Amino acid sequence: MNEHFFTCPHCWEEISMLIDLSVPYQKYVEDCEVCCNPLEISVSCEEGEIVHFEVNEL
């Protein structure tokens, strides 16, 4: 697991989430821990590193 920090596109607060680096591709919806608005998270990992991270408003 790796802690990844990013800015919420709704409230502009910096938040963090734990990313499982053993999963090559993940796409899911999670609520912002600050403003509770939904976020679509897309993550790609290779060799134990995040190679792509994207967060979008829903």
Rank of each mutant, 00 (worst) to 15 (best):
H10S: 10
E49A: 02
V43S: 09
H4S: 07
V55A: 07
E30T: 01
E57P: 12
P38K: 15
F53V: 01
E40I: 07
N56L: 12
E3M: 09
H4N: 13
Q26E: 14
E30I: 01
L39D: 08
I19T: 00
S44A: 03
P24M: 03
W12Q: 15
E30H: 02
Q26W: 11
E47S: 12
Y28I: 01
F6Q: 04
P9E: 06
D20Y: 04
C32Q: 01
S42F: 13
E14D: 15
C45D: 03
M1N: 06
M1Y: 09
M17I: 00
P38G: 15
V55I: 05
D31Y: 02
E14L: 06
C32E: 06
P38F: 10
H10D: 12
P24E: 01
V29I: 03
P24V: 03
M17Y: 05
E46C: 07
N37L: 15
I15P: 10
L18T: 15
K27V: 12
I41G: 04
V55D: 05
V43K: 07
Y25V: 15
Y28R: 00
S44W: 09
H4L: 09
E40G: 09
E3D: 04
S22K: 01
I50N: 02
N2P: 13
H52C: 05
D20W: 02
S44E: 13
S16R: 07
C8M: 08
E49M: 04
F6P: 06
S16F: 13
I19H: 01
Y25G: 11
C35Q: 05
V34R: 04
E47Y: 08
P9Q: 09
E40Q: 09
E13S: 07
I15N: 07
D20C: 00
E30P: 09
G48M: 01
C45S: 10
F5N: 14
H4C: 02
I50A: 05
I50W: 03
C45N: 06
Q26R: 13
K27G: 14
V34S: 04
N37P: 13
S16P: 14
Y28V: 05
S42H: 07
E40Y: 08
V43H: 12
C8K: 14
H52M: 04
S44H: 11
L21G: 08
S42N: 11
I41N: 00
V51Q: 11
Y25L: 14
V23L: 02
V23Y: 03
E47Q: 11
F6W: 02
E30G: 03
M1W: 08
L39T: 02
E40L: 11
E3V: 11
C8P: 10
H4D: 10
N2L: 14
P38E: 15
E14Y: 09
E3S: 06
L58G: 14
M17R: 02
I19N: 04
Q26F: 13
L18W: 11
S16A: 12
E54G: 06
E40W: 04
M17T: 01
L21T: 02
E30C: 05
E47F: 12
Y28N: 06
L18F: 14
S44L: 00
D31K: 03
E14K: 15
N56P: 09
H10W: 10
E49K: 04
L58C: 11
V23M: 03
E57A: 14
L39F: 05
T7F: 12
E46I: 08
D20L: 03
E14F: 05
V23N: 03
E14C: 08
D31A: 08
P38W: 11
P24F: 05
C35A: 01
V51G: 08
I19K: 00
S44G: 08
N56I: 08
S16K: 07
